[in-house]
Each structure stands twice: as structure tokens, then as C-alpha cells.
Amino acid sequence: MKNVWLHRYVVLWAFCTLFLVVAGGLVTSHDAGLSVPDWPLSYGKLMPTMEGNIFYEHGHRMVATTVGLLTIFMAVWLWRAEDRRWMQNLGWIALLAVTAQGVLGGLTVIFLLPRPVSIGHACLAQLFFSTTVAISVFSSPSWKRGSIMVDDDGAPPLHWLAIGAPLCVFIQLALGAAARHQAIGILPHVAGAVVATGMVLWFTVRVLMRHADYDSLRRSALALVSVTFLQVFLGIAAYMSRLATAEAPQPMPVMVGFTVAHVAVGALTMAASVVLSIQVFRNVRRPMPAMQTARIAIPF
């Protein structure tokens, strides 16, 4: 019971992080990254005039600082209140990630948005959000009720899909970030969408066909498949809105809306694939070679 508040806090932290991803997407879509040339201060102050694009860039820094503080508190809370050692470690990893993310953000400003740094900042943001969602799952009351252990002897092993799907989604995110920051064209990302969506479908359909009776598996699979479809639709909309506004003298609201939504739902897609994988690793027994009878340790 004592950890109910910890869980609620972690969920709040994850929501704040999603909001931070939206705030970051707004920076990129408005081309506001360099509207504040200095860092860590903004125009030499803690609080510059929030006009024009400074609102997005400095606003993003403020939300990031808040999430940073929330992360410190979360790590310390886990360390004090969590019995599971690996959970404590996960808290520290999250703190390390948010710090690295902040430094990447500052570096990209100081070095005038070098592509590798901006792309790294975009990718790490996605991974960090998935970490916040994973910690939310691990700290939830339903997690503490224990696992259900179902069998799955399909081929390929479900656990392979549970690794392959988030991996494909992550590669897809990275290709999207590279395209968004103009390091590569859009084609690899569109081709990647076919692969990533295919993997997600394979993974979720397999779970839904065989394990739909189990709430945690069914819900996670439904969430992943729906969010992925939404993401594909938003990707097409983002692409079309870029084309439609290419001649405009400034970033247009339709383009900003669809591209930012695509970045944010991209974060949700990544997180949903991680959650389903976690549920599979926790609740589905790994198929054992016929002769082997010893119990194997299940992670988590």
C-alpha cells in the first residue's frame, strides 16, 4: 500500500514527459531551436521575454527542467521506497538519461543544431519516455499482483517478436528523426513504416489470437495496434502537410499540428511496444526444449 503514491507520482512524471516531447516537437516544427542562442541561460537570464519562437524554445527548457527535477525526486523515492534492486537501478538510469538529454539539448543549441546531436536528442527523448512508462508499469498495483504464466509454443517464439517489434519501432523512430532533421530523405522512413507496422501487426495479432483471455496481454496488444494505426495516419498527414505548406513563408499551423502529433504518437507507439514486450516477458512462459525440465528464471 505504501507505494500507491509512488506509482501515482511515476504516472504523473510519465505524463509530464509526454508533454515535454510535445514541447520539444513544437521547437523543431517551428524552427525555434536557435531562437535562444545561449545556454544554460536564455538571453543571459533565467526568464527571457516569451515572444515569438522564444516561447517554444525557452518553454521547452522550462518544461525540461521541471521533468529533470521530477526525475531526481523519482529516483530518490525509488531508492528509498523500492525493495526491488533493479527498480532502484532503473530510477538511476532514468536520471542519467534525462541528464544526458539535457546536455544534448544544450549542445545542439551551442553548436547550431548539428544533425547528429539533434537526432540523438530526438531519439533519446523517445527512449526516455518509454522508460517512464516502463517504470509506471513496474510500479503499478497490477504488476505486484504477480504474473499469470501462459504457454506459447508458436513459431517463431513470441519472445523473439517481443524483441523484434520494439527494435523495429525504434529504428523507425530513428529514421523519422533523421528525416525530420534533414539528414536523409523520407523514403527510408516510409519503407521502414511498412516493416515496423508489419512487425507490430505480427506481434499483436499473435498475442490477440492466442492470449486474448488475459487482460494485461490483450489490453497492451490492443493499445499497441491502435496507436500504430493512428501513427501511420498521422505520418501520412505530416508528410502531406509538409508538401502543402512547402511554399509558405513561415511554419504553418497545419504542418506544426500534424508533425508534432506524429512525434508525440511516435513516443506512444514506442512505449506501447515496450509495454507489450514487458507483458510478454512477464506472463508468457518461454517454450522449453523437450528434454529440459529445470525452471528457467524469467526476467522481471
Binding site: P40, T65, L69, I72, G102, V103, G106, L107, I110
Partner: peptide, 17 residues
Amino acid sequence: MKKIYICLGIVSILTFS
């Protein structure tokens, strides 16, 4: 957090510069 940012920032700027 700000302090951590500043310290890490300075270290990395020194390295990168």
C-alpha cells in the same frame, strides 16, 4: 538540476570545443 546541467554542459563544451 540546473547545476548538474551547467556542470555537465561546461565539461562537455570544454571537451567538444
